[in-house]
């Protein structure tokens, strides 16, 4: 038995003895990558401001996770890419106008990042245990704390170094305040409006404007099966249906006109695409059973349209997702997966 290994050298672990190659950090970094097209479009339209703000968010997110984990003696996990993702998402959800020295608002992204990573994620136990989407809590905190700075929108200039672009309103803002006729007027004609909304040449948060780029990233994630259709499709579908039913207004009286809305405008504007494909699908804060995810998506869509049509804000995706985050554990608990054989047992 000369070349038989000594017994104490045998490794003993629990079954299964083979594992899939997928890892948490590979998933996180892939999602980061899938966001790049949309980020680059934001960079193209809003220039260096977009880059600075997003970089600031990423750096402060990663550093605050690192220092918090050091401080409380937890294992440092910044390599897993999840705090990078939080920073990237937060940056892409902020208005480019925040990179401003007069008035001074550069501290705003940093505060948002710390709130997102330390309070929303680490205080609740770190990755996997947070109830709310960290980036969205960060943004919600900033919107409430800095209402003015967070609602100054700049025109997409495509002028690379322009640090002082002209301010304007977002399409949803125009729609809410002045109605659909004004919105179409601002973009020339209806077809041009759709086209500009689709490629992202409009005012808005850094990473939310280009539907085209977001769909490329989302398509990649769907193809890699990192996300499934359940949440995005039920979310977008609900928005489209409700926009069609309740989104119309009588141009004379200004009162709601049923079944006269324009679903496409609602689908293409605001943070809907970014929210539906990249934020509502966050593993940790959405239900994990597929049928529950459809309920979750419908809830997100309904709340989004409630806020857009009846609420005080022109956009409702953020609050809709955050509110549905509260229900995710409840949905999982009440809509468990179907146990093999159990259905037939009932029929007996």
């Amino acid at each position: 038995m000369a070349d038989v290994k000594k017994e104490h050298e045998l490794i003993v672990t629990v079954s299964p003895h083979v594992r899939d190659e997928e890892t948490t950090s590979r998933i996180m970094w892939t999602v980061n990558m899938a966001l790049l097209p949309a980020f680059f479009m934001g960079f193209y339209f809003f220039g260096l401001k977009a880059l600075f703000i997003t970089a600031l968010c990423i750096i402060s997110s990663v550093l605050s996770e690192y220092f918090f984990q050091k401080a409380v003696n937890r294992k440092v996990t910044v390599n897993d890419g999840s705090s990078f993702l939080t920073g990237l998402l937060l940056g892409m959800n902020l208005p480019p106008s925040l990179w401003s020295f007069n008035p001074f608002t550069i501290h705003v992204p940093i505060i948002g990042s710390v709130i997102a990573v330390v309070i929303t994620k680490q205080f609740f136990g770190g990755l996997g245990y947070n109830i709310f989407n960290p980036a969205l809590i960060g943004r919600a905190f900033l919107l409430i704390s800095f209402p003015k700075a967070m609602t100054i929108w700049t025109e997409p200039s495509a002028a690379f170094f322009a640090l002082d672009a002209k301010t304007t309103a977002t399409p949803l803002g125009i729609l809410k305040e002045d109605g659909i006729a004004k919105l179409i007027e601002a973009f020339g004609d209806k077809l041009n409006l759709y086209a500009e909304l689709f490629n992202g040449h409009r005012a808005g948060s850094i990473g939310e404007t280009s539907v085209l780029a977001l769909l490329i990233g989302a398509g990649f994630l769907l193809y890699k099966r990192y996300i499934t259709w359940h949440i995005p499709i039920s979310f977008l579908g609900t928005v489209a249906v409700l926009a069609w039913i309740f989104g119309g207004k009588n141009p004379e009286t200004g009162k709601m006109l049923l079944f006269a809305g324009d679903p496409l405008i609602h689908l293409l504007s605001g943070g809907l695409m970014l929210g539906a494909f990249f934020m509502a699908t966050d593993y940790v804060t959405c239900p994990s059973v597929r049928k529950g995810q459809i309920v979750f998506g419908i809830g997100c869509g309904a709340l989004t349209m409630l806020i857009r049509i009846k609420g005080g804000y022109p956009e409702g995706v953020m609050f809709a997702i955050l509110l549905m985050n509260c229900f995710a554990p409840l949905i999982d608990r009440s809509m468990k997966s179907d146990v093999f054989g159990a259905v037939k047992e009932k029929k007996k």
Binding site: H17, V18, L127, G128, S288, R290
Partner: peptide, 15 residues
């Protein structure tokens, strides 16, 4: 080829 089970992460609820 051995996957050591003592180093595992939290459940990220990916489903």
């Amino acid at each position: 080829g051995v996957v050591h089970t003592d180093e595992f992460g939290p459940c990220i609820r990916c489903g």
